[in-house]
């Protein structure tokens, strides 16, 4: 009888302890989620405020830190789109597109070819050349600005889109070449050998076999290039002088420069439009993007 009582006590004790543990777990989960939500909100707040403020009037923008507009207006978008120049913002978006399209396509093609050569073929001076790629990766951009400017000036490319995309279309972005080389090294070469036995030459093997397997990394490369080009300010500032050739990044600055009293709601409204393509493209290809950078050995 004594034994039975003891075991019943033990069972009740254990049940109480299990309940306490479950309560603690729930509490700790709630705290963790609250913290995550808070930090996430703080980090996203500038973006949320930007979107909210783009619907405010100029006078309301600086009256408080809240993001909800009291009198929502599309004034910023309508007038911002028209700009203070003879061109609408549509023109600047088109200019950005004219730079981005050849740059992204050129980068994808040229970096793939360069990376394939480095990852799969033996050729004279391969190590020296790959060493140079890594060295370029570590070189600050600013160092090459002046020599590049002089080169493009001598080629007669100033005030054109060419200096903005041609170097990238010739595998000039060492980072992408490195990223693709790393990804290719992680792929087994059996499939390529099978293709060679099937009679494919190097180019056919690259196009039919390697590129489809490289797709996640290639999507990452295209996304990175798209976002970086969309956000590039210094390049267009140096090489473009005619307003009709300005991309979005320069056009945003233009609206700050030309008027003494800044129309902030117009600038914010156009900023929202300027970041939206990158956001849309990123979320559309997010899955491949993460797969591409994580399996390529470049994380962060």
């Amino acid at each position: 009888m004594t034994d039975i009582t003891t075991s019943n006590d033990l069972t009740m004790d254990e049940t109480a302890r299990a309940k306490r543990r479950a309560g603690l777990r729930l509490f700790s989960t709630a705290i963790r989620y609250a913290l995550l939500f808070l930090v996430g909100f703080v980090m996203l707040y500038p973006l949320i405020w930007l979107v909210g403020a783009s619907f405010k009037t100029n006078s309301e923008i600086f009256s408080g830190a809240g993001f909800l507009p009291q009198n929502p207006t599309l004034d910023g978008y309508i007038k911002g789109w028209q700009t203070s120049t003879p061109y609408t913002f549509g023109r600047f978006f088109w200019n950005s597109f004219l730079i981005i399209l050849p740059k992204v396509i050129g980068t994808a093609i040229s970096c793939t070819m360069a990376a394939y050569a480095f990852a799969r073929f033996d050729f004279p001076l391969k190590k020296v050349l790959f060493g140079s790629v890594i060295a370029i990766l570590l070189l600050p951009n600013v160092v090459t600005r002046i020599p590049q400017y002089i080169l493009f000036r001598d080629l007669g490319w100033l005030d054109s889109f060419l200096p903005l995309w041609v170097p990238s279309a010739l595998a000039g972005d060492a980072f992408f070449v490195f990223m693709l080389v790393q990804f290719l090294r992680s792929l087994p070469s059996d499939m390529e050998e099978a293709a060679r036995v099937d009679g494919a030459n190097s180019l056919q093997t690259l196009v039919y076999i390697v590129v489809p397997m490289l797709a996640p990394a290639l999507i990452s490369v295209c996304l990175f290039q798209f976002m970086w080009t969309m956000n590039d300010f210094l390049g267009p500032l140096i090489y473009l002088s005619s307003v009709d050739k300005y991309p979005v990044s320069l056009a945003l600055k233009l609206s700050i420069d030309t008027t003494e009293a800044f129309e902030w709601n117009r600038i914010l409204a156009m900023s929202v439009l300027a970041i939206s393509p990158a956001l849309i493209v990123f979320f559309a290809a997010q899955r491949y993007f993460i797969e591409g950078i994580s399996s390529g050995g470049i994380k962060g």
Binding site: D190, M191, A195, V197, Y208, M213
Partner: peptide, 13 residues
């Protein structure tokens, strides 16, 4: 020639 590989080497896509 035609070759059969140890890990099949089928084109995954």
């Amino acid at each position: 020639i035609a070759m059969v590989f140890q890990n099949y080497a089928l084109y995954p896509h």
